[in-house]
Design a protein around this nucleic acid. Sequence first.
DNA 1: AAATTTTTATAGCGATCACTATTAAATACA
DNA 2: TGTATTTAATAGTGATCGCTATAAAAATTT
Lengths: 217, 217
Amino acid sequence: MEASRPRGRPRTFDRQQALQVATELFWRYGYDGTSIADLTQMMGVTPPTLYAAFGSKEQLYREALLDYIRSNGVLVERVVHNGEPIYSLIANYLYRSAEAYTDPAHPPGCMLQLAALTCAAENEAAHKTGVELRQEAFQLLVASLEWAKEREELPSETNVFALARMFMALLQGMSIQAVDGASTEELKEMVTAALAAWPGKRPNETQNTIHHRDTEF
Amino acid sequence: MEASRPRGRPRTFDRQQALQVATELFWRYGYDGTSIADLTQMMGVTPPTLYAAFGSKEQLYREALLDYIRSNGVLVERVVHNGEPIYSLIANYLYRSAEAYTDPAHPPGCMLQLAALTCAAENEAAHKTGVELRQEAFQLLVASLEWAKEREELPSETNVFALARMFMALLQGMSIQAVDGASTEELKEMVTAALAAWPGKRPNETQNTIHHRDTEF
DNA sequence: AAATTTTTATAGCGATCACTATTAAATACA
DNA sequence: TGTATTTAATAGTGATCGCTATAAAAATTT
């Protein structure tokens, strides 16, 4: 099956690959800290090519962040489709985040949690993008805890908003501490300490010594 | 008692006040997001005056951050000098941080926790300043928990490093969530949920309904 | 082959970046 | 009253910022 080519001159670069290059740069250096010159140089394209493909620096940032989330934010899909118990799901997610945030193969921490926390006043659009996408992630976490409460996996008096904020804070704190050089094991020990705050009884206590394949989950 | 004036032309601006202006700008907009033009305009001085007084943008940033910490980081002084029980000290500090991070009188969150998490590669010195000062704060938190353990306020098997990381993560998560628009009450509820992870028995359970004067502590 | 469509690179736009050479102004000291 | 000392503003420096006008190149369609 040969896909019919579009009409004009064909692309000489991989758009998705260029997007991942942009993601890594924005992730490590932030919105203000990444220049168009940085992007074009690492992508191997010239400025007009970048603008033809992505519109503007702000649009490229948003698309890069959305692509990062699509590739890495799998928590809710799992709770919905697998029906996994909420405790093991969240505990495993936290331990796996401790590994991912310290993986030297990419910048430290979670790109979403670090996205445009501070930036120049004239780049408020990028700031709002970060705020908006973090709020969406928070709402999904709240929803997954709500569903677990309906399934009676959490005590009926549980404050799911407060609990969701606490797990968000753990992911955010792990991101900053990964930037500051914390090791995988140090972050995992913190997760273990924090999971003591789980309300009610914890079914199937998950150990941080359980290691998973990178391709799993 | 009249302080003898120095020899040359006297200053026409308040250096400490200018430093606080710089602190607010760096706090809200970050290192990359704050320009010399922003600083000079808000300080009411010209660029040569700023450089004569503070050396460089990097030195001004470091000085502003150190001044912020000196003004706001009072945790350890309290545990050392007052001999306050560690649980009430940390619980109160967390609840008060929830108030401070959402105070509309200044930028949201903690300037230290948000300091230069990401910035341009050529500004690595500012990034290192942030990392270094957060690591110092973490070591002080570890030390205060260690002393509490020696005073037998914590179980002997307590992992104080993991516990210190958890409280750092709460402060860091509260900072990011304050940036994202969380309310004082939402952050306090999160603190309450997280304090359930406190090891052993908690003496004198602190309520988030206890309100303190702004001038206290 | 000619026309149409799309992507490409060259070259450079005006604005802003962090920073400074120069000189005038304002004080204390001799 | 000079001289030394320090701070002040004027007026810029070269470099980089995000972005684009223009036109050549490479494909399909007619």
